[in-house]
Structure formats: structure tokens, C-alpha cells
């Protein structure tokens, strides 16, 4: 196994163009586990985690968007300014692994691995994030919903690298909640992100309960008919129904970590709780 640590993004792209089957290594909190366990034996690795071009973020006040470089770490996303701009993503960041994992793990790595249990992904789905891809021949931007095509399957093309992720900065409430066997170092058995957008729409995205992150269009449509934005209110009965509809949109499976029944139940509870947190009155 050879490891290239490029000094610039251009070098990384050139190396990836020369050897498109190279494993791209960011924080290593997934990839190194696979290498250590012998599940992946890459001939060549390109370590991009410290590339300055991928370590920046830009908050554009005019367009109310935040562009986050792919190698920004979850420890950084926990910090105050991200908590203000993208509270759900920042909350999700705080649930990733442990402090040591978050110092290394990157948002771009989470997106590239694209596990349905990736903690950052429900927030990116609920926010309709844009994934910016770059290769030696050019750039393209893909909505997150089109980027993730299956469990750990993406629409990334050979030679492409994730450069950044853009998310909108909304004024409304947003939050992330997940269920696992303990608080730290856990792969979620069910997760949900709720965000209120600037048009007053309630958005809900589910993790760990389907082959991809699931946007709950029916639950979102139901919420639009029952929430009172002025009073920040929803009735408990409507919140319960919101949870029931969300659970019906989940497509969970039984596996070694949990059962489909439990996951569906957890989604009903998490979705109801998130809606009540967003609309605490009534």
C-alpha cells in the first residue's frame, strides 16, 4: 500500500486521475477501520484530510448559505458559529463517535462513505445540501438526494473528489435526534432531522431506516396543514400523527443492530419529539 499526501488540491486531482481506483482517505475513522480489519486492501491511498483547499468554510450572508470544505472536521462543526448557522448539522456532529473521532472525522468523509447511518447525512438531506465535486477536467454540483444512490453507493465518478458541501442558513428551528445503544461511539439504529425552512415548510429526513436517507414528503405535507408558525404551536395529537406518517415512510430492515419494528417505532417517537421541540406550544 502506497500513501500519497498531496500538498495541493491540484496534486490530489492529478494523482486521482492517474490512479482512479485509489482510496481517498480523509479522517480515516471509517476507512482505517476497514484497512485495519483487512476488509479493504487498497494498493494506493490519497490522503486529503489536511488539504488547505478543503479545510475552509465560507458563510455568504447575502445568499444565506454556508459552503463547508469537505475536510472540515466534526469537531469544528460542533463549534459555536456552526451551531448558529446549521444547528441540526452541529447537533449531529456532536453525536458522531467520540471527541477523538470528531477531531479526525470530516463532513466530506461522511458524505463519501454515504452509509445510511451516517450522522451528518439526515441534516444534509433535510437542508437540500449541494455536493460540489471536482476532478482534473472540471467541477459539477449535485443535490445530496442525487449524490446518495444507495447504501454506501454514490454518484461520484472515477477521478472525482468531494470539494465542499453547501447548505442554506435558515432562521427557523432545526434539530437532530438518534437512537443507539449508548450515547458515544455508536452507529445509530434510527435517526431523524427536522428543519423549518424560510418559507415555513417543515422538512424531515430519516437515517438508518432505508437504503438511503429518506425525505418524508407525506409527513412534511401533513405538518404544513397542522402547525401554527405564529404561535409556534402544534397539538400533541397532530404531533403523534406526524410521527405515525413518518414511520410509514421509513423502509427499515432487520439486521444485527436492530429490528425493522423497533426502528419504525423509534422513528415515530423521534419525529413526534422533534416536531414538538420545533413547535413547543399548544
Amino acid at each position: 500500500m502506497s500513501v500519497l499526501i498531496p500538498a495541493t488540491l491540484a496534486q490530489a486531482l492529478s494523482a486521482l486521475d492517474d490512479a482512479p481506483s485509489s482510496m481517498v482517505l480523509a479522517g480515516g475513522t471509517d476507512a482505517m477501520v476497514e484497512i485495519n480489519g483487512g476488509h479493504r486492501r487498497p494498493d494506493s491511498v490519497i490522503a486529503v484530510g489536511r488539504l488547505a483547499e478543503l479545510r475552509t468554510w465560507t458563510h455568504d450572508v447575502i445568499s444565506a448559505t454556508l459552503r463547508i470544505g469537505a475536510a472540515v472536521t466534526y469537531a469544528e462543526l460542533e463549534a459555536d458559529q456552526f451551531r448558529r448557522w446549521v444547528p441540526a448539522l452541529s447537533q449531529a456532529a456532536r453525536t458522531v463517535g467520540s471527541p477523538q473521532i470528531r477531531h479526525a472525522a470530516t463532513l466530506g468523509g461522511n458524505v463519501a462513505t454515504c452509509s445510511p447511518a451516517g450522522d451528518g447525512l439526515p441534516a444534509l438531506s433535510a437542508l437540500d445540501a449541494i455536493v460540489h465535486l471536482v476532478s482534473i477536467t472540471g467541477q459539477r454540483s449535485v443535490p445530496f438526494a442525487e449524490f446518495m444512490v444507495g447504501p454506501k453507493r454514490t454518484s461520484l465518478r472515477p477521478g472525482e473528489l468531494i470539494e465542499a458541501i453547501t447548505v442554506p442558513v435558515f432562521a427557523g428551528w432545526q434539530g437532530y435526534a438518534k437512537v443507539g445503544v449508548r450515547n458515544a461511539m455508536v452507529i445509530s439504529n434510527a435517526g431523524a432531522c427536522l428543519a423549518v425552512d424560510d418559507e415555513g415548510g417543515v422538512r424531515l429526513a430519516l437515517g438508518s431506516v432505508g437504503p438511503t436517507i429518506i425525505r418524508c414528503s407525506q409527513a412534511e405535507a401533513f405538518a404544513a396543514t397542522v402547525v401554527d408558525h405564529g404561535q409556534r404551536a402544534v397539538s400533541e395529537a397532530d404531533a403523534v400523527e406526524f410521527g405515525r406518517v413518518a414511520a410509514s415512510e421509513a423502509r427499515p430492515i432487520d439486521d444485527h443492530r436492530s429490528t425493522a419494528d423497533y426502528r419504525r417505532h423509534a422513528i415515530a417517537v423521534l419525529s413526534r419529539r422533534l416536531l414538538r421541540r420545533a413547535f413547543p406550544n399548544g
Binding site: V3, G28, T29, M32, V33, N36, A47, P99, Q100, I101, H103, A104
Partner: peptide, 8 residues
Amino acid sequence: SVRSCLTL
């Protein structure tokens, strides 16, 4: 703090 087992 980092995991030295996940770092090359």
C-alpha cells in the same frame, strides 16, 4: 486527542 490506531 486522536486514535493512533486510525492514523498512519
